[in-house]
Design a binder for these strands. Structure first.
Lengths: 219, 219
DNA sequence: GACAAAACAGGACAACCGGTCTGTTTATAA
DNA sequence: TTATAAACAGACCGGTTGTCCTGTTTTGTC
């Protein structure tokens, strides 16, 4: 009588990754048991094992697919789309701070959460996480370089600016998580914006600003 | 025949804390079993349980005694003893970077390592960790205020500077841990030093520098 | 429809975890 | 000495963990 089942491998895999991402983020890798995940996802052990042979494989998939995507979505894309690197950084900080204040609690940065717990646990984890950090920094430094070519940014070292930005954000999120208060994020942003302030804004050596803006609008 | 034993409660407690601190730092809280700790410390279950009734109690002791002491030793004291806040910050960054490069690997910041794993795990953990963050920031902002009263520092907001410094360090250590390379620490320090650079150094708006230096030398 | 492979179900299991418990030894104080 | 508590030893237990294994069902292909 009851004999209906639909094989939905992609959907099953997605559901598992969904709850794994959420659970790893909220409780951490070691504190999340596969039993918890199975229950939360409504998935049997056989199905889980079929898609992810080991817990490590599952975590690696979460890192490479979900965490990387989260960084891409909340940081890399907004920065790329912003009129300038500094502008993009400010926008991301404020957007994240606003979102945290609205949801009322702070779970921390997905990348940093897993990075701290897993970087030393396994070389594969470490490399995957380091790659995401590298891509994150790269997106910012590339944007700074583009700004410089467009005359929007002064002689700021792009890699240095990117490293400090990512570090300030990561560290601010760490504190915000411990204090359960996103205020420190805004505080760090304000400090960050005072690093080698660019010639624009109210310009002593402000030149070619108009033309640059047009260029950007054209692209 | 063999009937010698010396009760050394303080020594026993210290040994347990030693290995717990080390193990929590290297593998994390959840990844460290009490069996591992007992074996590493050469302590029986009875003794461990006598001094630390639960694993949580042990972790709390590690946080409140060891982690707090580590922050005090590597950050708060050096900053207090430094000629200025900026000088102290630079000294700590460089000392840590040098130490990491010498030991060849990066285990990360003790406070941040535990903060990421335990902040959401238990309110007691979170509060203890947040307190350490607060003390850390406080030491820096107090130093900045002292610098300002001494005329050594400009109008930099002390709390903002402290937050950014702690965030930059924490985030840089996070990246250094993932990349197993302390270089990003130096990079972030260089960026940090370009935040609202004080009137001293080589002064366009450098005033009262001479007098200020003397004041500081007197104290 | 035959057949192989993928997708899924669900139980089994050994290892391990944290905590408890009882008992013994050592220090302390009267 | 004797009582009393602290310090320690070590076995024990219920529950959980991650993984594996054997089946069963679905899907795709010829």
């Amino acid at each position: 009588m009851r004999k209906k089942r639909i094989n939905d491998p992609q959907g099953m895999r997605r559901r598992v990754l969904d709850v794994a991402e959420d659970c790893f983020q909220a409780r951490g890798y070691h504190a999340s048991s596969l039993g918890d995940l199975m229950a939360a996802a409504g998935v049997t052990g056989g199905a889980l094992h079929h898609h992810f042979p080991t817990k490590k494989a599952l975590a690696l998939a979460v890192i490479e697919e979900r965490v990387a995507a989260a960084v891409e979505e909340t940081w890399i894309e907004p920065v790329r789309a912003a009129p300038s690197a500094r502008n993009g950084v400010r926008a991301v900080f404020e957007a994240v701070a606003a979102a945290l204040e609205q949801q009322g609690y702070v779970r921390g940065c997905p990348l940093n959460n897993l990075a701290h717990e897993l970087s030393l646990a396994d070389p594969d984890f470490r490399i995957a996480l380091a790659d995401i950090f590298a891509g994150w920094r790269r997106a910012i430094s590339d944007k700074v370089r583009a700004d410089q070519e467009a005359g929007l940014e002064g002689g700021t070292d792009p890699d240095r600016f990117a490293a400090l930005t990512v570090a300030a954000y990561s560290g601010a999120m760490s504190m915000a998580k411990a204090e359960q208060d996103a205020g420190v994020l805004r505080q760090c942003l304000e400090g960050l914006e005072r690093v080698e302030p660019p010639p624009s804004q109210n310009g002593s050596p402000a030149r070619r600003r108009r033309r640059v803006v047009r260029q950007q609008a054209i692209r």
